[in-house]
Design a protein around this nucleic acid. Structure first.
Lengths: 138, 138
DNA sequence: ACAGCAGTTTAGAATCGTTATAATGTAGAA
DNA sequence: TTCTACATTATAACGATTCTAAACTGCTGT
């Protein structure tokens, strides 16, 4: 399947018609090798630089919201200034570089196995994610 | 030392004069047995109910910001709608109940020891915190 | 192919949390 | 008590996000 077909499929599976705006957004999000961490304004800026006819902010918000609710994007909370999203939707962990505000993914194989020894009655664990904050020594 | 003296000390150590508004805020925050998780609007509402003369939102924001920057409060990021604060400033972990949006603390003794097997060159780990999302089974 | 409609995009207004402003009030040192 | 630097306040400003309603378009049925 070509990338373009993948993108269309992703949109259709979210009950979104593959319009040119949405495809443009999806290309930025998903047509890349590495995980992409972004805010709406990052994305809007990239889209503006990339294409001649600009896409309305409302469309960007709507598309990202739907992609998120359908599980194609994940929201990550590091600080509360802005909402970050992640194209890596697997259960994974983050390094947060306090000096540069950069995020780096890491996976279960990079951490010792985590066992939670306490539970909340009547509740089931849905996810376990670790946030490691790092900074320069000085 | 009485609670009231503790509160005054906490304010003075933050370079804040112990005014009646600030003391009122600190009583709500720190004069309690259990950890308190709150948003600014939670706090504002409690303060309004509690005392006759209401405290300006600006004062609440300023006081909380300073207390946070001086390490008497901790900011926690769960979702990005609102900024949450925590009176528990120790390194600890959270359960987030997706059904009720409630937060519960848990500590290192409630989890297996965590070893990070990867590192970021030139950076030092400042904190490791785990977020466990839980929800009803159905 | 194309008409028609449901779904989409858009600019701009509205909203909400948070921060800034500037006038008035007050804690605390002398 | 007086004075000054710090605090408080109401309100304005701001920025991210959501809403609105009018114009536009993909897609289905013909």
């Amino acid at each position: 399947m070509t990338i373009e077909q993948e993108l269309v499929k992703k949109l259709r599976s979210s009950n979104l018609r593959p319009t040119k705006q949405r495809l443009e957004i999806c290309r930025v999000l998903f047509d890349r090798q590495k995980t992409f961490h972004f805010t709406i304004s990052d994305l809007a800026q990239i889209l503006n630089e990339k294409s001649k006819n600009k896409i309305s902010l409302a469309t960007i918000y709507n598309t990202v919201d739907v992609l998120k609710s359908k599980g194609h994007l994940k929201e990550i909370s590091i600080n509360s200034d802005k909402t970050f999203f992640d194209t890596n939707i697997s259960n994974h962990h983050h390094f947060f570089n306090e000096n540069t505000n950069e995020l780096t993914d890491f996976y279960d194989e990079d951490i010792s196995q985590i066992k939670i020894k306490k539970n909340i009655p009547g509740k089931k664990i849905k996810s376990v994610e670790v946030l490691v904050k790092v900074a320069n020594n000085n």
